[in-house]
Structure formats: C-alpha cells, structure tokens
Amino acid sequence: MAKKIKGDQIFTGQLLREGLVVYFTADENWSTDLQQAVVATSDDELTELEMKIESISHKNDVIDVYPFVVVRDEKGKLVPQHIRERIRTEGPSIDYINQPFKQNMNAA
C-alpha cells in the first residue's frame, strides 16, 4: 500500500462500472463528493481505514484505491494538497467543452 505521508489523508478510488472518482466515507461507502470523505489523522487511523476497505463486501465495485493528503481551506472545506489530486477532484483545468476557438488575429 501507499507510503505514509505526513498529514491528514483520505482514501480515493474509481467506480469499476463508470470510472468516476470516489472517496471513502464514514458510513463505509463511496461518494463522489470529496467533502463526504472520512479523514484519517494518524497512521493508525489510516491503517484502520485501509483494513475496513479491504473487508467491505462491495470491494469489487471500486478500483485503484489509494490514500492522499488533504488540507482544510479557510472555510474548513477539504482540499487535496497536491495539484494532481486537485485536478482529479475538480476536473480538467481547461475549458474542454466550450473551447475558446481562435481568433484569427489579423482576419481580413
């Protein structure tokens, strides 16, 4: 399993059927809402969470499970510490559907 990094951590994975990013919650389920995630504040809690995930019956529904570090913003909301997880949580940082097409700058 993953390295123990200093800081509060939550477990994430992706839904097997849909591929969507999910987070492990206090009621031993998976939610697409990061704010629902259960936070491990020590190595022991992290290990405990990991064992819990291993033991739940719907284990097969989620793949690629690993923990990452979160911090709280000024409003107390959970935010991933690393940019990779921030992009993974918030979606592509670019305007991928309404692309800012052109302009041809010196158009006649």
């Binding site: 097997l16 849909e18 591929g19 969507l20 990013v21 097969n60 793949i63 690629d64 993974r88």
Partner: peptide
C-alpha cells in the same frame, strides 16, 4: 466477467488495455 467479479482487476487490466481501455484521472 469483470463486472460480476469473476475476473479480478489484475487479470482484467491487460485485457482491457488490449482493447484500448485505460483508467485515467477522471474516468475511463
């Protein structure tokens, strides 16, 4: 077989890759 759990992810992964299916940052 994968969705029903007969096939484990480790066994399925190379099979899906050979059909062009990756698991990316946000989705397949």
């Amino acid at each position: 077989r994968r969705l029903s759990g007969q096939l484990e992810e480790a066994q399925f992964r190379p099979l899906r890759l050979m059909n062009g299916v990756y698991l990316q940052l946000h989705a397949y």
